[in-house]
Simulated scan of single mutants.
Amino acid sequence: MKTIGMRLTVSVLALTASAGLAFAQSDELIAAAKKEGSLTTIALPHDWCGYGDVIAGFKAKYGLEVNELNPDAGSADEIEAIKANKGNTGPQAPDVIDVGLSFGPSAKAEGLIQPYKVSTWDSIPDSAKDADGYWYGDYYGVMAFMVNKDLVKTMPTDWSDLLSDEYANAVALAGAPQTANQAIQGVFAAGLSAAKGDVAKAGEEGLKFFAEMNKKGNFVPVTGKSASLAQGTTPIIIAWDYNALSWRDVLAGNPPAEVIIPKTGVVAGVYVQAISAFAPHPNAAKLWMEYLYSDEGQLGWLKGYCHPIRFNALAKEGKIPAELLAKLPPAESYAPAIFPTLEQQGAAKDVIAKKWSEVVGADVAK
């Protein structure tokens, strides 16, 4: 377990010393990808981590079509889409996935993804990638509260505040904890706060916390989004900071929204990329990875308020524009951030996903 300030952590994360380099954005790879003609993605909302602009940039640079499946899917849905489309070369078979950290090793173990090391492999921290190249971290953020200031007069500053009578029928997760990594991590973060930092107890304590919130009538069992916040259905949403900040920009003050990083239980979550073992367009998939992990792609995520996984390397080389850093919350807000290990995340995911309905008794509608 690590506690890391997320703005400038150049000296904290060690970089791997060597790796077999890939084709990069070579003429050969570009030609092979163009011959395939298209790329199929899944679960990439355009307002998530700046993906709208990232996808547009990839299309403009290489002239490939991008077939976007089910933007609102969760990590488990992405894995199921690979399983359901083994041998299918049609438009419903995803070439690439973007999933929560704990889903990477399990997908590898099930033979659902294939190895590929991008040319910038050396600048991806060892702790955020599979040594054999089956999956690799792409960006990270922390759990935050997004609040409709027209409807909520007292801003919550920590997880325990969400149990206040003032927040009756107000608090929502940004997904279903049985399938969506964002929701699982929200429950985990609440539990980490309740357990006073004991990661081993965070899953069970998170379920107890939401069971109490549901019993009090504060929990709203629908998927929180910018639209539901604006409509007043979910005045408080628990979501990744980059999603909340992006939604705040989209709302543009109608209604006014505030994004708050809680004082405790600050959980940082890494998402990872991988190529399907059955990808109909494997070269387009590799080119997509090369683009995402290039300086251009990484800064595209930062524009969407995500901390790109190569943040440290880019910062060290002076490649991050000051105006992008200025748009992020103050560095001190991230100081208590905890990066759970793969084992800790996996254990918590199993507890939360399997016991949510039984313990909390509130299935979240999409």
Results as ranks from 00 to 15, higher is better:
D161Q: 10
P177T: 08
D198R: 02
F219E: 05
S119I: 04
K201I: 02
P105A: 04
P105Q: 04
P115E: 07
A170C: 07
W135M: 00
L192N: 01
K225L: 13
D132A: 15
K117W: 07
V187C: 05
A211F: 00
D126L: 12
P115C: 11
K201P: 00
A131H: 01
Y140D: 03
T223I: 04
S164T: 08
Q182L: 13
S119N: 10
K129Q: 14
L192C: 00
A183D: 01
V222K: 15
K129R: 15
F145H: 06
G137S: 01
S119M: 03
P125L: 02
A174Y: 02
A107M: 13
S123T: 12
Y139P: 00
V152H: 07
S226F: 14
L151D: 13
A174H: 05
A200S: 14
V199L: 13
I184F: 05
A195W: 11
K153R: 15
D130Q: 08
V187N: 04
L162Q: 09
G186W: 09
D161H: 13
T157I: 12
G186H: 03
K149E: 12
V220P: 06
A180R: 09
E110F: 00
A128G: 00
L151I: 15
W135S: 00
E166W: 08
Y136N: 03
G175I: 12
G133S: 06
D132H: 12
S127G: 08
Y136K: 08
S164N: 11
A144P: 07
E212Y: 02
V152L: 05
D126Y: 01
D165Q: 11
G224M: 01
W159H: 13
A180Q: 06
N181T: 15
F188L: 13
G175C: 10
S193Q: 03
V147I: 15
L192T: 02
A227S: 14
M155W: 14
G224A: 10
K108N: 01
A180F: 10
Q114T: 15
Y139I: 04
G186S: 06
N148D: 15
G203D: 04
A189P: 07
D132T: 07
Y116N: 08
P105I: 10
V220A: 03
D122C: 05
P156H: 12
M146E: 11
Y134V: 02
G217D: 10
K201E: 09
G137N: 00
A190F: 03
P105M: 09
N148G: 13
G137H: 01
F209N: 01
G206Y: 09
V152M: 05
A109Q: 14
A168Q: 15
K215G: 06
D126I: 10
K216F: 05
S127W: 04
T120P: 00
A190N: 05
K153F: 12
G133R: 07
A194H: 05
V187L: 05
G186A: 08
E205D: 13
G191C: 05
G203S: 04
G111V: 09
K216H: 06
D122F: 01
K196G: 04
G217R: 12
P221W: 07
S123F: 04
G203M: 03
